[in-house]
Amino acid sequence: MMLCKQLNEKLDDYMDGTLDETEMAVLQSHAESCESCQQTLKSAQRLRKLLQDCPVPMPDAAYFDRALAQATRVSTSHQRNRWIMTGFGGALAAGLIAWIIGGVLLKTPDLPDSDASIPGVVIALEVPYTVNLVFSSATELDGAVLTVSLPPGVEIEGFAGQREITWITSLKAGKNILPLTLIATTAHGGELLARLEHDNRDRTFRIRVTVT
């Protein structure tokens, strides 16, 4: 009975293996022959296992995107001003790249991987050049995430030194234009990627940037 009491008092240390060797050996040999202590150890182990398995109902990835977008909403509404609604008329700059996403937005496959189908722009070293990314959406898309990845030596005005820029934004139904002013700091050029994600779906658009 003495040992039963001792084991009960030292149960956590016993299970953690943090008792000194002598005490551990004494309690171990007692437990082997004591049904009540075996029962105690069994239920302590079961509790541990149960606690380890105690679940958290995790929300899906879209929930985290929404929560982030919500937290930044003041700033997001500021960013939204970057999207310009347009009638898609002739008033657009010469550098217009029209990336039209059809009615099956974000479900359609990416543009084929052949050079010929990738739209391109030619820009001069150190001379700012504005391209307009046009996204046409059949429906309103709230909390869409747009990530622009730049080739080496090409920057977006206002984001010096950054190769990847992410916006959380909303697309209105219809055509949305995002003007990006590119500046080439070296003559490398390469591919600019614009990845649009919404509701666990994404689509990547590519544009070839040639620097002269």
């Binding site: 958290v56 109902p57 995790m58 929300p59 985290f64 929560a67 982030l68 937290a71 930044t72 700033s75 997001t76 500021h78 960013q79 206002g158 984001f159 950054q162 820029i165 992410t166 916006w167 959380i168």
Partner: peptide
């Protein structure tokens, strides 16, 4: 941090900890 870019930085910094934070909220 320019106002312009706060969202992106916030998201990038925080995203790795979102799951841990949510679990803590639930606990």
């Amino acid at each position: 941090i320019s106002d312009h870019n706060r969202n992106a930085i916030f998201e990038r910094l925080l995203r790795p900890y979102l799951e841990r934070l949510y679990r803590l909220a639930y606990r």
